[in-house]
Simulated scan of single mutants.
Amino acid sequence: MQAYLFVHFREKRTPDGEQVYFGISEDGFRWEAVNGGAPVLWSYEGDKGVRDCTITRTTDGRFVIMGTDLSLAYGMPNQYDGSWEEITRNGSTSLVMWESENLVDWSEQRMVELGDESFGCLWAPDITYDSENDEYVVHWSSAHRSDDFEEKAIYYARTESFEEFSEPELLYRKPDSGVIDSAMYEENGSYYCFLKSEANPAGIILLKAQRPTGPFTRVTAFDRTMEGLEGERYEAPTAVKLEDGRWCLFVDYFGGSPETQGYVPFVAESLEDEFVRAADEFSFPYGFKHGTVLPITGEEYDRLKAYEKEPSER
């Protein structure tokens, strides 16, 4: 049996929201909380918060979680002085990381510094396996000193083992707007990258390349999926191939109050087909915020369903 794990954070005004939460599903449609809806992992280093989580299963069977090193609950009233621009320019140049062999016993938190003084905050990492080179491409969005931190672009670093990382390089820059929230998938020998475009259009767009590091071209047919939606209100795309062969794309709606925010699902036969909104078929225990879906086994599902962690446990 194939099941699914959704690693995410929660939109709350308290520090416990910006931590790592797990949701699980047997079919990818109906989701339930792990650990009673409490965090599975807490960030105790850096900004002491973690947002925009991603997870991958490595070729040797390990699990790696990475995320944005940021806590609005702590940082906005303090070092960032209530300013998103201050975070963009002077936020953390590290990503938060944990590793596990079984999804329940996790390593100590690591801070992986991938940016230098030329980078602003490193946002929303994603991990893509490069089968041709047998290594992983970690990509994220950042503003950069080269254009006075104006428009965000997507950067990447390579790693074979998540111990050492290459120097960051540019993955994709959109000429007429910033881009954030890259999420990349391989299908039929091509790599497809969903992004949030900040303008022209404001919404989720889709790119395609023959290699995970590009060069990328726009898949303009995908724009039909976003037609009629408040595109600027959607971000943080994540997708998963369901057991029946269809693809499910989740996009994070951030309009309205924190209680009404969370992922909205769309379904398509392939990544180049039109995605159809399927909200009525899905259910969530609460609003999942910016995360990643990972296929898991039935045994892993059962292990996570039974997982409980005391609030005092790190």
Rank of each mutant, 00 (worst) to 15 (best):
A202V: 06
F119R: 06
Y172G: 00
N188H: 06
S182F: 04
A157M: 09
E167S: 07
E117W: 11
Y155S: 01
S182R: 03
G115V: 09
F194W: 13
G189S: 10
E117Q: 08
E160A: 11
E187R: 14
D134C: 04
I154G: 01
S177V: 12
G120V: 10
Y156G: 07
I154Q: 14
I204P: 03
L195H: 11
E151Y: 15
N200M: 08
E151V: 13
M184V: 10
I180G: 00
W123R: 02
D130H: 04
L122I: 09
S177E: 10
L114K: 02
D130G: 10
A202S: 15
N200W: 07
N188C: 02
P175A: 06
R158T: 11
W140L: 02
K196L: 06
A202T: 09
E151A: 13
D134M: 06
V138M: 09
E187L: 07
S146R: 12
E186A: 08
S161P: 04
S166G: 02
E150K: 12
L195G: 07
C121R: 01
S161Q: 06
K174H: 05
E132S: 09
S142L: 09
T159R: 03
G120Y: 15
E169A: 09
K174G: 01
L122P: 08
S161C: 09
K152T: 12
F194G: 01
E169D: 06
V138F: 08
T159K: 03
N188V: 03
G120C: 10
